[in-house]
Design a protein around this nucleic acid. Structure first.
Length: 513
RNA sequence: GAGGACGUAGCUCAGUCGGUAGAGCAACGGACUUUUAAUCCGUAGGUCCUGGGUUCGAGUCCCAGCGUCCUCACCA
């Protein structure tokens, strides 16, 4: 770093601003590379012919000789990027620069740029951001290059980059120093750009179906809508305890009472739970509500959201995730909860004694637990991991779904589905419960065996009042966006798709050089 | 929260039985106007995560702590 500090001073002594200025009129490197067909060869007879396509082992010198000599002429271009590779052959340097569309080689000769500019070039380092004016041509080996006429320093770097080609490998540093990971690991940069494309695609699909996006409160006085422990905070002026939201559900449903018939929110929720390859304390959730729909309308919507998102990043219906090969063509399979339970455990899902025996046999405790809680623990323990899918699991036991409408002909079954892919729950949807009296009753019903903090049954009087004012029958959907991105970008850890996952505070002093 | 693995140069990693701290890349000096991870010659670079302990002697063995990863638990 001392060497870079010395070069920084040299640059200042040359009267050059090491931190750069606005740099107008540059093109992205990807666009510049696409202009290679504009390169022509001017024969000694003055005739213009097409330059050769680049192939491995191309020897421009003999190619030129075969045509009786002459010179390449190419378009004038301006590029900007980070120096990622550097080959110094004395009075001639080859510098590879990279922007977010690609990399290109600069051909930089002392005679071509002049003494003055060369003094700057001698003080450049890997990692520095530079601009270039030059002619797009090919070298003797046929490598597409910008033949520099002038190099501009756009920003000096003080810290050295990670090993070239290898990039940052240490997963801690990749997360903690995400800027370096993004700058030097192209596949990481691409993954996060794909995340953006997926999110854009989701919004587009919803917008095309007349859904409107809203912004609900993230500070809640009652952390409802899901079963999770909340983060707590405090508002000083109001002297009020508050929770960071754990779900989007209850405010979106209030909006449906207000006549926003198709509404969604795509935003951050916070759960004060453990961290794992599938869990980050803050994560991105999509919730969608459609008046006069039901959980089956949400299945169709879920399918088009995923199909379009896959298309948006250039994937088809066959994708791989780790070792798994998946067919995500629609429609996805639809299987009832009880059927899957019976299939994977061999237990009659309605035989209480057999369920309890089975639960105990696989090491679950059953004492004091509601039979549906036991049943669901068996399902989570033995069935979910087998659902490679994608598969919609439908018709859950009503008692574990306090926000869901019951089936008309069977009040013990809730109109709900969860979508599983590779054993991971990607989405969860209901036909929304809109009966205020039943909702109030369910908020009061604490299922045996579930601690209060893990229950969805948190009384929210204002929400019940909203229902008394008429919420239309509706379908509602929740999608774990980070997990969807994991699936579509073949990422095994949620931290690979969250730019800045939660880490412990750094103990050392980052200011120390 | 429990268990396991890991932590050595800016980065990626070796380090044998406990006996002077190593390599590649990056950096610095030199040669080179068509290189492709350029090449060649030379130089410099260390809180071996931290703190204790055992030992004549610890990167190495023991204990504690910190951090990351993995598995499990909770959750989506």
């Amino acid at each position: 770093m001392a060497a870079r500090r010395a070069k920084l001073k040299n640059i200042c002594d040359l009267g050059i601003d090491p931190w750069g200025q606005r740099f107008d009129g540059r093109s992205f490197i990807g666009e510049i590379r696409a202009r290679q067909y504009e390169i022509k060869f001017k024969t000694s007879a003055g005739e213009l012919i097409d330059a050769p396509e680049f192939v491995e082992g191309l020897d421009m010198r003999s190619w030129k000789q075969e045509r009786g000599g002459g010179d390449l002429v190419g378009p004038a271009v301006r590029a900007a990027g980070r120096i990622v590779l550097h080959r110094d052959t004395g009075k001639l340097q080859f510098i590879d620069i990279q922007d977010w569309t690609g990399t290109i080689q600069l051909f930089v000769g002392k005679n071509q740029v002049g003494e003055e500019n060369w003094k700057l070039i001698e003080n450049l380092d890997l990692g520095d951001l530079i601009g270039v004016d030059g002619e797009l041509k090919m070298t003797m080996r046929g490598e597409l290059s910008i033949f520099a006429e002038k190099i501009y320093l756009l920003t000096k770097t003080i810290e050295p980059p990670p090993a070239k080609h290898v990039g940052l490998v240490d997963p801690e540093l990749r997360q903690r120093l995400r800027y370096i990971d993004l700058a030097y690991n192209a596949e990481s940069r691409q993954r996060f750009l794909n995340r953006t494309k997926i999110v854009q695609s989701i919004r587009r699909t919803l917008d095309e179906n007349q859904f409107v996006e809203i912004e609900g409160p993230t500070l809640h006085s009652i952390a409802g809508g899901a079963a999770a422990r909340p983060f707590e905070t405090f508002h000083n002026a109001l002297g009020m305890n508050l929770f960071l939201r754990i779900a989007l559900e209850l405010h979106l449903k209030r909006l449906m009472v207000g006549g926003l018939e198709r509404v969604y929110e795509l935003g951050r929720v916070y759960r004060n739970e453990g961290i794992s390859p599938r869990h980050n304390p803050e994560f991105t959730m999509l919730e969608v509500y459609q008046a006069f729909g039901d959980y089956k309308s949400m299945m169709d919507l879920t399918e088009s959201l995923i199909a379009n998102a896959s298309k948006a990043i250039g994937l088809g219906t066959q994708i791989s995730w780790g070792e798994q090969q998946l067919d995500i063509s629609i429609p996805f399979a639809r299987r009832p909860y009880h059927e899957l339970l019976a299939e994977h455990t061999g237990v009659d899902p309605f035989a209480e004694r057999a369920l309890k025996d089975y639960a105990q046999a696989i090491g679950l405790t059953v004492a004091g637990k509601h039979i549906d809680v036991i049943k669901n623990e068996i399902f989570e323990e033995r069935v979910e991991e087998k659902l490679v899918g994608p598969v919609f699991v439908t018709d859950y036991p009503a008692s574990i779904c306090p926000l869901t409408k019951r089936k008309q002909d069977d009040p013990t079954i809730a109109e709900r589905f969860e979508l599983f892919v590779c054993g991971i729950e990607l989405a969860n949807a209901y036909t929304e419960l809109n009966d205020p009296d039943l909702q109030q009753k369910l908020f009061k019903t604490q299922l045996a065996g579930l601690p209060a903090e893990e229950s969805m049954a948190k009384m929210d009087h204002d929400f019940v009042r909203a229902l008394r004012n008429g919420m239309p029958p509706a379908g509602g959907l929740g999608v774990g966006i980070d997990r969807l991105v994991m699936l579509l970008t073949n990422s095994q850890s949620i931290r690979d798709v969250i730019l800045f996952p939660l880490l412990r505070a750094e103990t050392g002093n980052p200011e120390h050089e």
